[in-house]
């Protein structure tokens, strides 16, 4: 018994298994693959970024969820993590980073400032990044603990797993991007 690996594998999607074959939906396989290899792009401007560093480090180890490789180029990233206060002057830059990511792309707003402006209810601060880009998951907290960030990532994994592979071509999605004036 000592030789049994403690490695926890992800569960196979619903399907029909037989001797030497396994049949399931194409969407579920793609969803499974995507959800367990989300490459994060950290956009950290303040204290939430420090919490994210703890999340990435050995103790909390976001790599367990397939987010081993932190991408510092938007072009190779799937998951944009916006952490910290975004000033209005920074908003066009954040938007440009989002536009440079290739589809499919997801966004997590980490912390109160990224979600709503937080305590900075003032003329110079963007009142939530959803004013300039669409957001999939909001993580509350000021700053959130690494557990909360991991929880946010796991919620996103659920979204990714269940996303239809046609969603990005749907009229609804195009309408959403159009409402943000993103091509």
């Amino acid at each position: 018994m000592e030789n049994v690996s403690k490695t926890k594998m992800v569960e196979a999607p619903e399907g029909i298994a037989g001797e030497g074959f396994f049949a399931t939906r194409f969407d579920s396989v793609i969803g499974l693959a995507r959800a367990n290899s989300l490459w994060p792009l950290p956009f950290a401007t303040s204290c939430c970024g420090i919490e994210f560093m703890a999340t990435m480090a050995s103790h909390y180890d976001l790599a367990r969820f397939g987010s081993e490789r932190v991408s510092f180029s938007p072009r190779q990233a799937d998951m944009l993590l916006v952490m910290g206060t975004i000033s209005k002057k920074m908003a066009p830059i954040l938007r440009q980073v989002y536009e440079q990511m290739s589809e499919p792309r997801w966004v997590i707003a980490v912390g109160a400032c990224a979600s709503s402006g937080g305590i900075f209810d003032t003329y110079s601060v963007l009142q939530g990044i959803d004013k300039v880009i669409p957001v999939d998951v909001y993580v509350p907290g000021c700053p959130p603990r690494p557990e909360q960030i991991v929880d946010g990532v796991m919620h996103l994994q659920e979204l990714v797993k269940n996303e239809s592979s046609r969603r990005r071509n749907s009229d609804e999605y195009k309408e959403l991007l159009a409402s943000y004036n993103i091509e």
Binding site: S87, K88, K89, A91, S116, G117, D121, T122, Y123, S124, V125, Q127, G128
Partner: peptide
Amino acid sequence: LNMDEMVSFPLRKEFPMEDSGRTDKDDRFF
């Protein structure tokens, strides 16, 4: 320091500190 599109001079006392475009914050909760 401020964005180029800004039309006000924010530290003049006649301009309010709060972002006038905010929609989701209820003053009572602050």
